[in-house]
Amino acid sequence: MPSLADLQGGFAAALRDAGLPPPATIAGQARQPQSRRFDVYRNNRMASLIEALESAFPALRQLVGDAFFKAAAKAYIDLDPPQSPVLLLYGQGFGKFLDGFPPASQVPYLGDVARLEWARLNAFHAADAASLAIDRLAALPPADLAGLRFELHPSLQLLHSRWPVVSLWASSSGTDPDAAVEMSQGQDAMVIRPALNADTRILPAGGYDFIGRLLAGAPLAEAAELAALRDPAFDLAVHLQGLFEVGAVTAVLPAGPEPKQE
């Protein structure tokens, strides 16, 4: 008599590999070659996991079509099955998988569209926090501004892309069906969900570095300097205003003693 562990091991292996026969531990008629009974479990598993990816990556599905999406999803599930019962957040590696998925080699931007949707999914389920208005800054002495550190919203996500990832997403998600897609222009994206709806934005010049440094805990002046160095067109006033407008700032921390760097 097989142990429970062995029985489940054999069952799980056959479940994941349609090339294997149904497990020998199951009774009678379900083991016959013409029986579909074990396939019910195989189908339930695969169809429900594909569905999870469909609901996580709706724009990508729209972009590539249903048949291509299903085939890609199935290959991804075989390679990188979920390891947590919290399927809300399954699909982290789907972008990377698509980067190397041979049938997608002619559409090299699919991976970034998947990464943008993954960012949106994470923003959707991220912790909630109240945003600050920009007048919080006006109350501070100007001399203090340079050393301020910002706590940013837990839902905030950044994505750097050499493709026009936001335009591609907007045109296929239905958010902006007429979005102009200029394939030669990369876009940096920011996703944030300050209340109920996720907001997906194209970041202006230097924004990715600026917000990235703020997220890492750098003081305002340091983040601005780095952004200006990377992109001379960086405009601090525009970015500050923008950050507060989208609800990205949840706390302003006064300048503390500089950490010694020697």
Binding site: L4, G9, R45, S48
Partner: peptide, 22 residues
Amino acid sequence: AWSTHDDIYLNDLLPLPYTDEA
């Protein structure tokens, strides 16, 4: 039912043998 084996979540409610061990 069971739904996880090793570190893989199988996302279905899978049947059990009705044994004393189970």
